[in-house]
Design a binder for these strands. Structure first.
Length: 693
DNA sequence: CTGCTTTATAAGACTTTGAGTAAC
DNA sequence: CGTTACTCTTTGTCTTATAAAGCA
């Protein structure tokens, strides 16, 4: 908003602007004309009549009624963030995710440090420790399992009494606070400091959970450090609120780390743990979740009920989207499934990689690269896989319509995209019914696997597929656009190359949109940074004299201008018979070499010409010296500036000719050079070889 | 209070093989 | 005379995701 050039005082619903007539300097730009419509002429007249300084002061009012309303409307309407900001958010999301997973891995390594574990060994009473390793054969494993859990409970009680929490630890930040670089009062944690914290049983909530892991591991219990990574929502396109931003900064949750409170304030402190522990109960073969800090519980996560570690969607300070478990061997496992009731319906939609395979791959690579590679699947891992599968099945259908959208397992017909269809549309594709809470109507629930994406035959061709014989369109759009599903198509097999003869289309080229579209016996030589289409064609046509075809790899769409400009085919290389591949590569190498050689020679030639030019200048100077005597700089002769000017003039000429010295001109206005020396010395211009040495 | 509908906006998907002119 | 490089145009439509207010 440009600042107004006039003084404005608010007065109820109307604004009164006073403008000093003498110093009036009002620039009206086009936007301001909107405001002119709102000028109340009556008020203006009135103001003029009782103007305090006569004609010099002009007072008028702007009726703000309409403007206010439109601004209110503007405030109501939501303007999403722009593309660049979306990209930035996604990048930050990934960056935080990656660094947090690394952070967890580092802490986990600390929790398994030999020195630390040796030190902690003595801290647990033998009575409790004995419950984790029961080797009496006559006791049922059910009983052992119960005793194991009892041991955990007792340990938790002791530990949570002993451990002093001094700060809340890691907390989630959304977009309104990610930009704040308020200095963290938490000192940078070193391993030495961590050791000290664990030894003296004090630190943040996070350190508390980590210390508990270390205590368990010191007794030889298989314990995992679990980290619920807190990331901002990259799917959010809501702009950062302006008004609440300053307010938000004031009540920034970071502030409280400056002054740790003795007791947790439920408003300012998180109600959900970020770090907790999973313990493998070898007697019941289940992972037991232990939180000694926030919930102070020891339990097996429920199957169908809400999980207490999972915050509601409205909770800004905590979201359960990525739960990472680190075991004693530093193997990383994503265990989010265990802690979210509606993983398929809600959680996956917040995770990176939900809408992009590339990002999904990125995430799995992050997990693989940070964690240690596990060898064969252990019994615990097999049990866990089964557990996750059971949880997946148990989740069932969403309980509201919105959650069916893009649900990985289920689909509702009214939510399908325009180019999607359910096939087969019969009892085999239905797997239940859904009643919207608002409507009485009941609609069938379909399996997502029965939802097929449709394309036109041309679009399928672009993906390297052709319609099977006799395929009937599953849908017709706009009367003439026939749409087919992938299962109605098959891979396009181009005609093979026989005897080096390449089958071309009506445009004299071949379409190779996919690698599968390269014909048998064919090789696609692609255009690269230093191999141009011209070089490829030269090599095939003039050097090897073989049959080839330009390959169209995609289309470029400059905006179609009313039948005038259609999409243009993009040439990506040439197609040749595979038998000539080696020969072509060799020729291309040669051509590239030759091109580079030519480039080098051009540079050389240019350099030599510059040298020639420079030499000639020297000759001129020396001739002038010879015929007019040496000019000394100390003498401050009037000749000096003159001579300088002369040289400058020639410099300019050189620039005009783009670095190439114009021989004819130089000799024409030469004047300074004597005929004989000119011919002698200019000879080097031609003999380049001698010069290079 | 919850969840659906309506109404905003930005952006993506979709499309699927030039012509005329100046310079070399 | 044949070949090559460059510049036109500037926004088409339809669909989707997301958010927030309104409403039942």
């Amino acid at each position: 908003e440009p600042s107004p050039t006039y003084e404005v005082t608010e007065k109820g619903k109307a604004q009164t602007a006073k403008i000093d007539g003498t110093s009036l300097d009002l620039e009206v730009d086009s936007d301001d004309f909107d405001d002119l419509e709102d000028v109340d002429m009556d008020l203006l007249d009135e103001a003029n009549q009782n103007g305090d300084r006569g004609n010099e002061t002009l007072t008028f009012s702007i009726n703000n009624g309409d403007k206010e309303r439109s601004e209110a409307r503007k405030k109501r309407t939501f303007v999403p963030i722009l593309k660049q900001e979306r990209i930035m958010r996604k990048l930050i999301h990934k960056l935080v995710l990656f660094s947090m997973i690394c952070h967890g891995a580092i802490r986990n390594r600390w929790c398994g440090d030999r020195r630390l574990l040796d030190m902690l060994k003595k801290t647990v009473s033998a009575e409790i420790a004995s419950l984790f390793h029961q080797d009496n054969a006559d006791v049922l494993s059910v009983v052992k399992a119960k005793r194991f859990v009892d041991g955990l409970r007792k340990l938790l009680t002791v530990f949570s009494r002993k451990f002093k929490v001094t700060s809340p630890g890691i907390q989630r930040r959304d977009w309104s606070s990610t930009g704040n670089t308020t200095e963290e009062k938490d000192r940078i944690m070193s391993f030495e400091r961590f050791m000290k914290c664990v030894k003296t049983f004090h630190g943040s909530r996070d350190v508390g959970a980590q210390a508990f892991v270390a205590v368990l591991r010191s007794m030889g219990v298989n314990a995992r450090l679990v980290f619920s990574v807190q990331v901002p929502d990259y799917r959010s396109i809501r702009p950062v609120k302006d008004g609440s931003n300053q307010k938000g900064e004031k009540e920034n949750p970071i502030r409280e780390t400056n002054k740790p409170k003795s007791e947790f304030d439920p408003v300012e402190n998180p109600n959900y743990p970020v770090f907790w522990i999973e313990v493998w109960n070898k007697y019941s073969r289940k992972w037991i979740t232990v939180d000694p800090i926030v919930f102070k519980v020891v339990e097996v996560m429920p199957m169908r009920r809400k999980c207490k570690f999972d915050a509601p969607a409205a909770e800004e300070s905590h979201q359960t989207w990525y739960v990472i478990a680190y075991d004693e061997r530093n193997v990383i496992k994503d265990v989010t499934r265990r802690y979210t009731q509606f993983y398929n319906a809600k959680t996956v939609k917040k995770r990176i990689g939900f809408a992009s395979d590339e990002d999904a791959h990125w995430y799995s690579r992050v997990l693989r690269s940070i964690g240690k590679q596990k060898g064969s699947i252990s019994q615990a891992e097999a049990m866990e896989l089964k557990e996750f599968h059971d949880r997946h099945v148990c989740e069932g259908t969403p309980n509201n319509m919105a959650d069916f959208k893009n649900h990985p397992v289920y689909a509702l017909e009214p939510q399908l995209r325009q180019d999607e269809i359910i096939y087969p549309n019969d009892e085999t594709s239905k797997c239940g019914t859904f009643r919207s809470s608002n409507k009485s109507s009941i609609m069938p629930v379909y399996k997502r696997s029965c939802v097929h994406k449709l394309k036109t035959p041309k679009a399928w061709h672009m993906s390297g597929r052709v319609l099977k014989v006799g395929a009937q369109p599953l849908k017709t759009k706009k009367a003439h656009i026939l749409l087919y599903a992938e299962f109605q198509t098959e891979l396009y097999i181009p005609p093979p190359i026989i005897d080096g003869k390449i089958t071309k289309n009506a445009y004299g080229n071949v379409e190779i949109f996919r690698p599968t579209m390269v014909p048998e016996n064919g090789v696609l030589l692609k255009i690269t940074r230093d191999v141009s289409m011209k070089m490829l064609e030269n090599a095939a046509r003039w050097v090897l004299n073989i049959d080839y075809a330009k390959a169209i790899v995609s289309f470029e769409f400059g905006k179609a201008l009313k039948n005038k400009r259609a999409p243009t085919a993009k040439e990506g290389g040439i197609l040749i018979d595979a038998q000539y591949k080696e020969a072509m590569l060799a020729v291309l190498d040669g051509l590239r070499e030759q091109e580079e050689q030519e480039k080098r020679e051009a540079v050389e030639l240019n350099a030599l010409r510059s040298w020639n030019f420079f030499m000639k200048k020297l000759q001129i100077v020396s001739r002038l010296d010879r015929s007019h005597g040496k000019v000394t700089h100390s003498g401050e002769d009037a000749d000096i500036p003159l001579e300088k000017e002369e040289i400058h003039k020639e410099d300019e000429e050189e620039e005009d000719e783009e670095g190439y010295f114009k021989k004819s001109e130089a000799s024409e206005e030469g004047g300074f050079l004597l005929e004989d020396t000119k011919n002698e010395d200019l000879a080097i211009n031609v003999s380049t070889e001698g010069m290079m040495d």
